[in-house]
């Protein structure tokens, strides 16, 4: 058994060391995998804020992932064709701009979905977030102006000042830096009065309400931040693949983001990072062995739910789950 702090640093350092090793060996494919894992981890960290800290079981986070991706795709399409958006705004491929747009769009989508879904709780909340996620999927499929079912290709990956984003090491570094910043943000939230109140709401909404804090507003705020983070992951994912399609909105993406969180350990800072790393590793290793690797993923998930409720982080560290 190792303390969770040490474990967390080992995971963070491990991902970085893996990428540097890949660079040293000239294995660019490994670098791309590491970037993919880091991006999935960001999406998971976003969901974990709602799911772990807030106790909000969202099965619709693909909506935010897709919104982030489409923000990048749409801006890039307008930049590629030199046609301003709404006849006013120039398209752009500058990452700081596209990311900002993705974050704002994700936050707005989360505000609307959250405001409606939080009128209910429990099983209703799960079904409603799942349904709204599906709504975005059908929206993207029928929206022929931006590719409809075919999606959009981004011919050149977006640029970041001072970096060559087409170099796999640079792009990994960028994704890893964003992941680190997001982790710091979530840790800060976790220790702030807002984070403490959010934890309290998960455990006892009635008590929190009695001291004069509105549980619904707290949950909505957490949901919005959560959606914005997941949208940022979607933006990076679009640039990683240089392609966006309605598949980013598919309900299986919501399920997979949830798997990152559960595999790693709910409500633990590095849980989603561990989960995303393991997921990408399994996808790579099992996917190479069998076309039907999702069966084994299903079996693993089932075993974790039935027998190992703290996820991998819980099994390897000695601290009990908070709350």
């Amino acid at each position: 058994m190792i303390p969770e702090r040490v474990f967390n640093w080992a995971v963070w350092g491990g991902l970085l060391a893996f990428a540097l090793l890949a660079e040293a060996l000239g294995e660019t494919y490994w670098l791309t995998l590491a970037a993919r894992a880091a991006i999935f981890a960001i999406a998971g960290v976003g969901l974990n804020l709602a799911l772990g800290n807030g106790g909000l079981i969202s099965f619709g986070h693909a909506a935010f992932f897709g919104v982030g991706g489409y923000a990048v795709g749409i801006l890039a399409t307008h930049a590629q064709t030199y046609t301003p958006l709404f006849g006013l705004i120039e398209g752009t491929q500058s990452m700081p701009v596209t990311w900002s747009v993705a974050i704002v769009a994700g936050a707005l989508a989360a505000l609307v979905i959250g405001a409606l879904s939080l009128r209910t709780s429990g099983a209703y909340f799960i079904m409603i977030t799942l349904a709204f996620g599906q709504m975005f999927y059908y929206f993207a499929v029928t929206w022929s102006a931006y590719g409809g079912e075919d999606g959009m290709s981004i011919y050149v990956r977006g640029g970041f000042p001072g970096l060559n984003t087409l170099d796999p090491l640079h792009f990994f570094g960028l994704s890893f830096a964003v992941l680190t910043l997001v982790l710091l943000l979530v840790r800060m939230i976790d220790r702030s009065p807002f984070g403490l109140a959010l934890n309290a709401v998960r455990q006892s909404p009635a008590r929190v309400e009695t001291v004069g804090i509105s549980p619904r507003r707290l949950r909505l705020a957490a949901f919005v931040v959560s959606g914005a983070i997941t949208a940022l992951a979607g933006a990076l994912f679009a640039d990683l693949n240089r392609y966006v399609s309605p598949a980013m909105f598919s309900w299986t993406i919501s399920g997979e983001i949830m798997i990152f969180v559960i595999l790693g350990g709910v409500a633990r800072l590095m849980g989603p990072v561990v989960g995303a790393l393991v997921f990408v590793a399994l996808e790579e290793l099992l996917g190479g062995l069998s076309d039907y690797w999702h069966i084994w993923l299903g079996v693993l998930l089932l075993l974790i739910v039935l027998f190992a409720r703290g996820g991998i982080t819980g099994a390897l560290t000695r601290e009990a789950r908070r709350g």
């Binding site: 799911l51 079981i57 099965f59 429990g122 099983a123 799960i126 399920g255 949830m258 798997i259 559960i262 709910v266 039907y292 690797w293 999702h294 069966i295 993923l297 299903g298 079996v299 998930l301 089932l302 974790i304 739910v305 039935l306 409720r309």
Partner: peptide, 22 residues
């Protein structure tokens, strides 16, 4: 709780779908 139910039944979807495909 509902989270465990959602995850276990999601795992069953993966098993059923890929099993049928196989």
């Amino acid at each position: 709780d509902h989270l465990d139910q959602v995850l276990a039944t999601f795992a069953l979807i993966l098993i059923f779908s890929e099993g049928t495909r196989a």
